[in-house]
Amino acid sequence: MSTTRNSGVIIGRIGLYAFLITAAAFFMIPLVIVFLTSLKDGVEARTGSIFDLPQSPDLDSYVIAWTSACIGRDCNGISGRFWNSITLTVLASGLSLLFASLNGFALAMWNLRRANLILAMLLIGAFVPYQVMIYPLVRMFAIGGFHQTLAAIVTVHVLFGLPILTLIFRNFYVGLPPELIKAARVDGAGFFQTWRLIILPLSLNIFIVAGILSVTGVWNDYLLGLIFAGANWQPMTVSVASLAATNATGVPDHAVNMSATLLTALPPLLLYLFSGKYFVRGVTAGAVKG
């Protein structure tokens, strides 16, 4: 009796692990083949199976992707776009986090009238698909004379990042004891002083969580970059999508394409691997109160 029961349990465990390992393979395979292809050269990538191991693995395709692959008629590789993406991400995430933290603090701890109304107005932006606002924003920027500039792309990123980030900060600050700011006010500290000296030092964790959400969001964006960044500030995602690397005879060089793809994926991937639990909190933070 107990032996059949035990063997049933063992078969169940084997099935369980078999399923989990198959699932892990399903999730890993696309990344693995992109990585394998990026180590090959153009001919090998075109003729061999994607599952073949590279015969002489090297980083040549990465060098081509970085320095000399053609995006449209511009043959300087994606390195310029990489730095564009870095600049955009630093500026947009930095400003978003700063505003979101100040907003969250103002909404959570000052008993403002209509704080909830303001939050609700803001949260419309988290649910309405942002494409609804794209054309009017293009018109507004065009009228303002800064369409397809750094200012335009940073503004839209901040605009669309603020709702969820403000909500994250606000929900965190609501949980802080109100005595904190009462004590500061007795000492005569103003709004910004209280924020800087008392609130900011307590906010490190929530800054990491919100920062991860913001950085991956800005870095991974495609549509806003396509429409608002213009040629000068084109982000990496846009260029890699239109990158069609070819060799001298016009045959597609998939090894270079896959190198560029992996380079685009790398920053958020590293952020994910090194931030662990914070990343999970970041990507699910928006969902908690959704």
Binding site: F27, I29, P30, L31, I33, V34, T37, I50, T216, W219, N220, D221, Y222, T237, V240, A241, H254, N257, M258, T261, T264, A265, P268, L269, L271, Y272, L273, F279, V283
Partner: peptide, 17 residues
């Protein structure tokens, strides 16, 4: 981990696969 990747990268990887 795929959640860290953009849909652009997701699309390119699957297109290749």
């Amino acid at each position: 981990y795929p959640i860290a990747l953009s849909f652009v990268v997701t699309g390119l990887a699957w297109k290749w696969l």
